[in-house]
Design a protein around this nucleic acid. Sequence first.
DNA 1: CAGCATCCAGTCGGATACTG
DNA 2: CAGTATCCGACTGGATGCTG
Lengths: 116, 116
Amino acid sequence: MKVYYCNLEVTMEVIGGKWKGLVLYYLMKGPKRTSELKQLVHGITQKMLIQTLRELEADGLVSRKMFNQVPPRVEYSTTELGQSLEPVLRALCQWGDGYADKTFAEGEFQILNNEF
Amino acid sequence: MKVYYCNLEVTMEVIGGKWKGLVLYYLMKGPKRTSELKQLVHGITQKMLIQTLRELEADGLVSRKMFNQVPPRVEYSTTELGQSLEPVLRALCQWGDGYADKTFAEGEFQILNNEF
DNA sequence: CAGCATCCAGTCGGATACTG
DNA sequence: CAGTATCCGACTGGATGCTG
């Protein structure tokens, strides 16, 4: 039996790690093809993208739709459960915004995608 | 210059990782001594506790107060900036609560600390 | 009590090459 | 285009022993 000592752990297990939050962030705005995601999530490698998507799928936050075409076409989108994370991710983004303003010195950082 | 591609990254850099969120979670309820934290944050080792506290301190979320006593006494508490994470952590907890209810099968999990 | 140093296993994640 | 396989370095985090 899996034991958690706080609900925080549950959530972090699902959106923690380097890429999960970001991938979800973009999928929430609408379904995306694999290649689109690869461009949107700056710096992610193919391996990590696929791996991240598989994990999100296993956790029921993302669904995968395959079209029988050549060349192959695959679309990912958030499930209802995944979409329910929207206010959470929004809160994380907003806090990060405020934190960056207060903490980082001018010219020492840059945030390229601000709006949720 | 440090570049972020989304504010999400900023926040995750600060509260991501295995222990940071949990330590903050308990500190938000009030100042704690090192030994208290070690008991509250179930499963954390001394090394990780200290390391986590140092990182939170460096990020300006936690402050460290030392009393000149023998035996030594050290107290940690959240700064104003750290306290501002309260709604964020609360959102993470609440979502985890709902997720666990919907997703986990009865008797396959246990959450020992539910209330924020 | 609070903290540091050391050692070490496991995981994470990046680079690259390859398949249908 | 979407995905897999492999290799490997770097980092995370745990165990233990020691200091003031």
